[in-house]
Each structure stands twice: as C-alpha cells, then as structure tokens.
Write a protein that binds this DNA or RNA. Structure first.
Lengths: 134, 134
DNA sequence: GATGAGGCCTGTAGCGGCTACAGGGTCAAG
DNA sequence: CTTGACCCTGTAGCCGCTACAGGCCTCATC
C-alpha cells in the first residue's frame, strides 16, 4: 500500500482488531468509510487509525458502541463543557457496579450450592435439589 | 383450560417467564413439546412446570442453556455419582469469578478516569484524553 | 507472461438468549 | 353473537462480533 496509508490488514494489526470487525465498524457507521485504491482496496489514513484506537479503548473499558459514538461526537465539540462526557462515564461505572453486585451475589449462591455437595449419587445431589422446584 | 393442565399463559405466570420465552425454550429443545388441545393450544402438565422451574432457576444462577440441558440429562441418571453435576457448577463458579475479577479491574480503571475530570471544556477533557491514542 | 500465495472484496448467516411484531385462529363471558 | 383476551405460526431484530463462500487484486518468482 502506498506511503502513509494502511491496508485493512495493516490497520487490523496496528490496533489488535480483526479485519472483519473493522468492516463491521464501518457498516455500523462508527468508523468512516475510507477512500479506495484503484483496485477497490480500503486505504486508511492516520485519522482512521486514531479513531479506531479510540473505539478499541472504549470497548476495552466496556463502553457500548452507542456510548462510544456519543463520546466521539462530543469530542468534536471542543469548547463545550465536558459534563456530558463525565455523565456517560459515570453511567457506565454505575452499570459496572450493578453487574459487580449481581455477580457477587451469584458467586455466594453458587459457592453455597457447591459446598453442599456430598459426592454421593445423583439421586441425593443437593445441587440438583437446589434447582428443582420447592 | 381443563383440570390439571395449564395454558402457556398460566405456565408463564407460574414461572415468571414470558410466553415467547417458553416457546423459544420449546424450539430450542430444552422444554419438551406439550400435547395440544383440540384447538391447537399447548396444554402443560406438572412435569412441564417442574422442568421449566428448574430451567428458570438455572438461568437465574447464570447457567447457560447448554449447561442446564446437561444438568437435566444428569438428573435423570439417578444412581450415577454426582461428580459431573459438581463439575458443571464448579466450572460455572470459576467463570463467574473470572468475570468478577475483570469487572473489578474495569471499575478501578473507570473510577480513576472519572476522578480525573476537572469539569472544564471538552478540549481539556481527561476522560477523552485517556481514550485517545497515546 | 504465467503462476501461485496471500491478501482483499461483497454478501450472508450464525452465535446466545431472548423479544417483538404481523396476521391470523380459538374460546368464554355477557 | 359479539367482544376481547388469549393463543397460534413465522419471521425479524437486538448486540458485537465471527465465519464462511465465492470471487478479485497484487506482487514476487520463475
């Protein structure tokens, strides 16, 4: 690929993203369609690299595609206050904390279940008992 | 519906499940197809109620449909040892613990991010900085 | 210039676990 | 006999990818 621009495979390697995922991001509108070479290959510039890196970090932090889209939109309005950014991050944190609480409760329940196993036959299995109707 | 048998709506209410979900469970083979009335309505018996309750509790505990299917199969082999049951539960617990660890790390990262917010303009937003490429 | 390997292209379908229709049939109360 | 609540099938959508199939492009090598 010519100077400065990246093929989809190169962009994929540069961002630890699969090629199919990049095309999916393009389809879903979060990564703009790049120009094409004469042969029809996508040719990405540094802007695409930066944007995809942003998306990947956001995904690693658990933000949804929609949230990332909103963050990217906000990032373009450089002299507005950053409260909206803060709000998205806080909402996501709250969601993470809800999931943590749920999973913690789940772990306790599962551990209690497993602790009751007497390693006998299925007929007297307490794990199955706990699942069977009361 | 006649004595002892339940319509799909009644079964749904009895198990806090949506009607569509019950039909989905039947399609996916985890709940057996019930007999039908002359008008073509599903007519569920106590066995179905018990089985669906089991499935629901399993789902509430985070087991996958496949795991629940395996547990149900095991539950039928009453004089085999219950090690396989134990193994499924332990594996699920391990998975839950992995997710807990991941979410905990995520929470720390997000909290750090949010703690850096200086409530200025978008241009100087540290949350966006943290997402933007290095 | 032919060939072959490895990339790239589009389009479509699948994952899990539901959920939500549309467009009909059934049934019991009044 | 009508009304309205229920039920039926079939299909499509959600999220965030992932995995093909069946081709085209490019480049190095002979």
């Amino acid at each position: 690929m010519d100077g400065g621009s990246l093929s989809i495979g190169e962009l994929a390697r540069a961002t630890s993203t699969k090629v199919e995922t990049i095309r999916y991001y393009e389809r879903s509108g979060i990564l703009p369609s790049p120009p094409r070479t004469s042969g029809g290959y996508r040719a990405y510039g540094p802007g695409h690299l930066a944007r995809l890196s942003f998306v990947r970090r956001g995904r690693d932090l658990g933000f949804s595609i929609e949230q990332i889209r909103a963050l990217l939109d906000l990032a373009d309005q450089r002299d507005r206050p950053c409260e909206a950014v803060d709000a998205i991050a806080r909402e996501h944190l709250a969601e993470v904390e809800r999931k943590l609480a749920d999973l913690g409760a789940l772990r306790r329940e599962l551990a209690a279940l497993i602790g009751q196993c007497r390693h006998g036959t299925v007929a007297e299995c307490r794990i199955l008992d706990a699942l069977a109707p009361a």
